[in-house]
Nucleic acid binder design. Sequence first.
DNA 1: GCCCGCGTCTGA
DNA 2: CAGACGCGGGCA
Length: 744
Amino acid sequence: MWIAIVTVGSDFLRLSAAPDLPMPAESVEVLLPVALDRSFTYSLPEDIIAPPGSFVEVPLGPRAVAGVVWGPGDPEVPAGKLKAVRQKLELPPLGDELRAFVDWVARYTLAPRGMVLRIAVRGARNPGDETPRSAVIATGSAPGRATPARTRVLATASDGVPRSKSDLARAAAVSPGVIDGLVADGALRIVEVIAEPIGSGLQPDLGRPELSEAQADIAALLQAAVRDRTGSTHLVEGVTGSGKTEVYLEAVAEALRTGRQALILLPEIALTQAVLDRVTRRFGGAPGEWHSTVSAKRRARIWTGTASGETRIVVGARSALFLPFRDLGIIVVDEEHDAGFKQEDVPVYHARDMAVVRGKLAEAPVVLVSATPSLESRVNADAGRYRHHLLPERFGGRTMPEIELLDLRADPPPPGRWIAPRLEEQVRDTLARGEQALLFLNRRGFAPLTLCRACGHRFACPNCSAWLVEHRFRRQLACHHCGHHEPVPPACPKCSTTDKLAAVGPGVERIRDEAAALFPEARLAVLSSDLVIGADSIRAELKAVEDHAVDLVIGTQLVTKGHNFPHLTLVGVVDGDLGLGTSDPRAAERTFQLLEQVTGRAGRGAIAGRGIVQTTDPLHPVMQALKNHDAAAFYAAEIDARADAMLPPFGRLASLVVSAPVRNDAEAYARALAQSFPASAPARLLGPAEAPISLLRGRHRFRLLLRADRTVDVPGLIRAWLAEAPRAPASIGLHTDVDPVSFL
DNA sequence: GCCCGCGTCTGA
DNA sequence: CAGACGCGGGCA
């Protein structure tokens, strides 16, 4: 009856408020976490009181499903169709703000509302009673015998936080036996603890760092935004090593001080132990950690903890954006340029952009943080939609690494090798000084292409338009798009010639072999996601590099993810041109971001760093931007090019993914759709001919691209078109991914 | 998303 | 002819 319409920038955000008098509801509208856009009306037994947001169990067909009361029931539904709510569930209700967010995201991403609700209720169950667990704390007395391992353990335990034996051993990187030894020695004591709510008991003023003037200024502005309860958006752009994390943690501290909660989003949380450690040090306790590998029980504790308000800080992957925060005071999106914020499955959404919307609904500032912002965020900052804060210098007087462009045409490596003499010499000098070097190549495996020298046959993926990559360590040929793999055959499948198969081009495994031959005395480590499997072993490898147990690192983009290597002084980029040759309109932007991040790993410690980028095109704008540390000029040029081409964020771009188990079905439907697109529409449809296909989770995917001027409501246009378009056979799925700018 | 019913296929 | 399997519709 009384609908409050909250307009934020456009009419996209509608927040429906409850009527001011609780009417005795006879029926309720219930949204269910299944692939349905519709909600259903159920009758409400007189003894159940279920205001909007309540969790209820309802019958759906033959099953009983837990859903959420979304509002009053639809009186138009004939009484004979109504089924009754079975029971109300003992769970904290979903607040108005989160329900409005679910509706908004579903409408914007063209996803069924139930699929969005599903994300918001993952973890919505009672964690049950907590049984006391045993933990160890430091007693304060010195051990009888001090070893480096023991010293590390006691340093870790000196904060007084009780930890389980295994957690403490892992945190100090020692074997569990060391802990038992210290307990026997009386330096550690076993205590029984009842687990506090996760992410609670945090102290905003515990580990306050010294801030530079520039850091303190930005921190003060962000803190004011937290206090003001405005849904403002901020872009904090600071070069690698400028201390961005300290700045946003001060804003997080302000949220804690004012009694509110904080959410820190990270693109790949399994790799970013560093941020968790820093939050723990800064606030004297661990935040809630939310990502796909967190156990169901921990999930439940964090979900209920955020709903009750006891969990004060959550550090999480994109789905943490749908947690039921009671009073959210700030959202931080760290590494905001990272493509990991994009969810490719239904609902297809970009967490950075959805964060902006949730921030507005929650009246909380959103802080986007990066050394290499996305073009979208740069444009939004330039246009004044986001406030732009710059940290142009490294913290503590450290300098940016000096970047050298190594022209591969003038100084090529010997045939069959990829490290040019000049880079080899620089690595040798670095190692001789006892410093650490990194050779970066963003390509897994041994060689990206295998061909038969006898007949010219090339090994291609049967499902995708891609070559198979040889993985010599695993003795396989693998497709990096769909995961197809086969053993390396002894002979050519086409002409049966043996011993004529040739590996073409380098991958990290091949660079490892080359480096091992060139620098036989160096301790090598390869950091590649297919060789280092599982979050724990990745963390262990990163720690070994951090501790200088490795001299020369050979790595893929795994090494660019938020880790500091204090001993690293030289970064060599083996193929700077990789990624620039594609037709992806974001190729230059992505390559710049990647190479700036990886060269920025050098010189974060006491010794100044250097970067050497091997390239065949030293005059390319990306190379010049790296060398001159002139991101501003690069961004300006890229933004102009985007504006001319009407690409996001100037034009609207949507992709529709048609997927089916059979490739021909997907293609036929994609064509049928394309033909039905009206010529008069204020947008152009591209594909499917020029669209790449791939196989993902057993389904062939065809992409259609829709390009429009920014004045078009793309989700609306697609909805209207699909209502008229040929209906998809049920075995064909259609995802939609709308580039988000319209809500700003 | 999940269940069910239906049509079709397969093997004895 | 029983049982398996894939597809499509409905779900209040």
